[in-house]
Structures are given as C-alpha cells and as structure tokens.
C-alpha cells in the first residue's frame, strides 16, 4: 500500500503537538523518539543489524514512497541497550538480549542452509517463506538449539517489532489513532462522532 493511498489523507498527529492535546512530558518523550537516527545501533553487530533490518522490512513492510520510514531496527537497538523486557518470560525462553542475538544468528544460519545466501540478500518472497517456517517452528539449522522457535517468533520477534512500530507517530497517522490526548481528551463519544482534532477517514 503506497502512502498516497492513505486511509486518513493529510492527517498528522504531530500537527497537534502544540495544542492542548499534548502535555510537556509527552512532547519530550515523542521528540526523543523522533530524534533517533535510523542507523543508530550500539547493541547489534553489523551482521545482526543487516539481518534485523531485513526482518523488520518483512514483518512491517513500509510504503516505498514514505519519506521517513519508522526506524524499527533502531528502536529495537535502543530497547536492547535499555534491556527493556516485558517483566516475564516463559521458562524455556532465554532473557531478552540473548534471545534476540541467538534468534538473529539462527535466522541467518537458516537462510544459508536453505539458500546458501545471507537472509538480507534473499528475495522478499524467500524471506517471507523462511519467516513463515520459523513461525510454524519448522526449522533445520542447528543454531535454533535451545530456543523455542515458534514461541520466539511470536513472543519476541513479532512482539518487539510491532511494539516499536505502533509506538511511532507515523503508524498512528496510518491507522487514524487520535494520538496523545492530555490534558484535552475528547468530547464526541458516539457512533460516527468525530472531534475536530481527530482524523478524517477517506470514504470509498
């Protein structure tokens, strides 16, 4: 889906930045997020970084005409540096950082085993097929040893990528979410009721 086909044309939550919908602490938090350089990574190695970027591009493919894609990989690197987990993990799952390092290495090994090439060098369809296999737990590379494959895919890989993407204002624009709303909240609550500061949906 091209950005030009947007369901909420012209809607930008950032346009509300200086309105009563954003309090100072929200401005500070979102500014920090927007200031993150897309190539910034201090946790992932160069090899991991290439694999990660390719994985993110398949889990959440962004429109080719999007001027500033959500820097998903950089947001994940930041999460790793902060070691910001979920507050729990299943008994057979390694801790956050270890799970990601081992998972990326295993994805890379799986790509080389199947295609004799790096994951990032595969065609999109091959990458998708490989990710689907991992989702089903159907893998062959020895590097998966000790990692609950399907659970890693769902609870770590998918979960962290999706958390990063939908925490970004660009994603909020795409889905017509009102975005930050404090101190001003909303007034019109019923069916088909829209406050003037909410997104207008393009009707077919």
């Amino acid at each position: 889906m091209a950005e030009s086909m947007h369901r909420f044309p012209g809607y930008d939550v950032l346009a509300k930045r200086d309105t009563p919908s954003w309090n100072p602490q929200t401005r500070r938090v979102i500014e920090e997020r927007l200031a993150l350089p897309p190539q910034a990574h201090g946790f992932f190695t160069e090899a991991e970084w290439r694999t990660l970027n390719a994985v993110c591009a398949r889990i959440l493919p962004q429109p080719p005409d999007r001027a500033d894609p959500v820097p998903i990989a950089a947001l994940l690197d930041q999460q790793m540096q902060q070691n910001r987990g979920d507050g729990f993990r299943q008994a057979d799952m390694p801790p956050l950082r270890e799970a990601w390092r081992r998972g990326l290495a295993a994805i890379e090994a799986e790509a080389r085993l199947r295609h004799g090439a790096a994951f990032h060098a595969l065609a999109a369809a091959q990458q998708d097929a490989l990710l689907h296999s991992i989702q089903q737990g159907e893998v062959r590379a020895a590097e998966w040893q000790g990692l609950p494959v399907a659970h890693f895919f769902k609870a770590r890989l998918l979960h962290d990528i999706v958390d990063a993407y939908y925490a970004h204002p660009t994603a909020w624009n795409e889905i017509g979410f009102g975005g930050p709303a404090s101190p001003r909240g909303y007034v019109r609550m019923g069916f088909d009721r829209r406050d003037p500061w909410e997104a207008v949906e393009r009707k077919p």
Partner: peptide, 23 residues
C-alpha cells in the same frame, strides 16, 4: 501531572518489569 505521558511505550515504567519466569 508531571510524569505521565500519553504514550504506551513510555508508560511501561508503571509495570513490574523485573523478570518473572512463567510455565
């Protein structure tokens, strides 16, 4: 009034994020 943002990621600071093991 000063610490809470309208942001899911930021507000994860309200949760118990030290590890628990589940099975």
């Amino acid at each position: 009034l000063e610490d809470f943002a309208s942001d899911e990621l930021e507000q994860s600071k309200l949760y118990w994020l030290d590890e628990r093991i589940t099975d």
